[in-house]
C-alpha cells in the first residue's frame, strides 16, 4: 500500500543556457508518495518552486512510459537512475527511503551540449542516422511483404537492436562518451535484414565517419553502456559493428 512520507534532499544541476557555467542547487521535497514516478516528484518540486516565485527545473520528458527516449537524467552517478533496464520516467519513488539525498545531473558529453538545466541537445544522433541509418527505398509499390521470408531468429535479433530508443544513456555512461552502442544498434537492425544488407558497407563507413565528426569518443569495450541501457541493447551489437566495419574497410571500393 502507498505511503506519503518521503522527505528528500535533491541536489540538481542548474544551468541557464549553453553558455552559462552552471552549478548545483539544493532543494527539499516533502511528503512524496512512494507511488509517484521520479518525474512526478520533479513535477511536485517545480509546482512548489513556481509558487515560491523561483525558476523551475527544466528537463526533457514526453511519453512517460519508457519508449520515446526523451527523458535523460543522470541520477546519483547512473544514467536513468538505480533500476536496471529502465528509463527515468519509469523509475518510481519506492526506490528511495525517507531522508535520502539524490543528486541529479544532465547527460555529460561534448557531443550533447546542455540547453538548460537537465536538458541537452542530442541532435548529433539524428545526424548519425542521416549519414546512413536507413534503407534507401522510396514510397511506392514495394513487393508483397511475404515475398521476403526472414528467419525468425534474424528478425528477432534485428528487432532487439531496433528497440533502441535513442536516449543517449550509453553515451552518458561511457568514460569516452562513445556512441558505439547507439550506432551499432542501428547497423545491426538493418544489416541483419536482407532488405538492409545491400547498403551495409557504405552505411557503416558513413555512420562511423559522422560519429567521429560529432565528437563522440572511441569504444574501449568496458560495457558501461550495456549496463545502463534501458532497452538492454546487447554489447554483441558492437562486435557486429566492428565486423561490419572491418569487412567494409577491406572490400569497399572507395
Amino acid at each position: 500500500m502507498s505511503s506519503n512520507n518521503l522527505n528528500l534532499t535533491l541536489k540538481v544541476w542548474k544551468q541557464k543556457n549553453s553558455q552559462d557555467k552552471g552549478q548545483f542547487e539544493t532543494y527539499q521535497v516533502k511528503d512524496i508518495s512512494d507511488e509517484m514516478s521520479f518525474l512526478e516528484m520533479f513535477d511536485v518540486l517545480n509546482e512548489k518552486l513556481i509558487a515560491e516565485g523561483k525558476e523551475p527545473v527544466t528537463f526533457d520528458h514526453d511519453c512517460r512510459e519508457g519508449i520515446c527516449g526523451a527523458c535523460s537524467m543522470y541520477i546519483d552517478g547512473k544514467p536513468h537512475g538505480p533500476w536496471l533496464a529502465n528509463t527515468v520516467c519509469q523509475l518510481h519513488m519506492r526506490a528511495y527511503k525517507d531522508g535520502d539525498t539524490v543528486t541529479v545531473e544532465p547527460w555529460r558529453a561534448n557531443a550533447f551540449p546542455v540547453i538548460k538545466d537537465l536538458m541537452v541537445d542530442r541532435s548529433a544522433f539524428d545526424r548519425i542516422i542521416q549519414a546512413g541509418g536507413y534503407i534507401s527505398v522510396n514510397t511506392g509499390n514495394a513487393q508483397d511483404a511475404n515475398n521476403i521470408p526472414i528467419e525468425k531468429q534474424l528478425a528477432d535479433d534485428s528487432f532487439a537492436a531496433a528497440a533502441c530508443i535513442g536516449c543517449g544513456a550509453c553515451v552518458a555512461a561511457c568514460k569516452n562518451s562513445s556512441a558505439m552502442l547507439f550506432l551499432s544498434a542501428k547497423v545491426s537492425h538493418l544489416a541483419l535484414l536482407p532488405q538492409g544488407a545491400i547498403e551495409r558497407k557504405t552505411r557503416v563507413l558513413n555512420m562511423i565517419a559522422q560519429m567521429d565528426a560529432e565528437g563522440f569518443g572511441a569504444c574501449t569495450n568496458t560495457g558501461a553502456c550495456e549496463a545502463v541501457c534501458p532497452k538492454e541493447i546487447s554489447l554483441t551489437n558492437i562486435a557486429r559493428l566492428n565486423q561490419e566495419y572491418l569487412l567494409a574497410g577491406l572490400t569497399a571500393e572507395k
Binding site: V137, A142, F159, H189, L190, L193, G196
Partner: peptide, 22 residues
C-alpha cells in the same frame, strides 16, 4: 496492404513465424 509492404521494404522488423513469414 501496401503499408505493410512498404514498411517491410524499409526494414521494419515485424514479428515472424518459424517459416519466415509474417
Amino acid at each position: 496492404g501496401n503499408i505493410i509492404d512498404q514498411c517491410v521494404a524499409a526494414g521494419v522488423p515485424f514479428a515472424r513465424e518459424y517459416g519466415g513469414l509474417l
